Amino acid sequence: MIKRGIVVPPVKVDTTLQDGDVLPYCGGIRVIFTPGHTPDHICLFHEPSQTLISGDALISIDGQLMPPDSSFTTDMETALKSVTKLLETDIEMVITYHGGVCTGSIRERLAEIAGK
């Protein structure tokens, strides 16, 4: 909506999340700040299962992890830097908002997407 210039009314924020915060749910969910799709985008990492909930930071097509959709990403350069940041996390599974679940060779695929 930002890219299209659509303005939505603000909402009241009860809790501000910071990069690295660990939420006390389901054994621990770590907040990872991943701007690019939007300026304030985050991913959530479920530590016990090593599962990343990527939101729109990544998409998947037929089980293959893919970069974010440039049509809906406000800053692709920053988005790819955020993918590079994800390489610091030991991820076994990714759940994308668009496309579903990806497993197998996650680190390698993230490196390819980030151009590393």
Rank of each mutant, 00 (worst) to 15 (best):
L23W: 11
L86T: 04
I29F: 07
I91Q: 00
H46M: 09
Y97K: 13
Q64T: 12
P67K: 03
S60I: 01
S71W: 07
V94S: 00
T78Y: 00
V101S: 06
I106Y: 00
H46A: 14
M76V: 14
P39A: 06
V8M: 08
G115M: 02
E108R: 06
P67G: 14
I6F: 13
G99D: 07
T78H: 02
R109I: 04
E47L: 15
Q18D: 09
Q18V: 08
D19E: 14
H41T: 07
R4N: 13
L17G: 08
I32T: 02
V7G: 01
L52Q: 03
V94H: 00
M76N: 03
S49D: 12
G27W: 05
H98Q: 13
V13C: 13
L17P: 05
F45Y: 15
F33V: 07
G28R: 10
H46E: 15
V31H: 02
T89I: 13
L80G: 07
T74S: 11
E77M: 05
T89C: 04
G28F: 04
G36F: 01
P10C: 07
I2R: 08
H41R: 06
V7R: 12
S70T: 13
K81H: 08
G27Q: 11
H41C: 12
D75C: 06
S105T: 06
K116A: 08
T38F: 02
T78L: 12
P48E: 09
M1E: 10
L86W: 00
M66H: 14
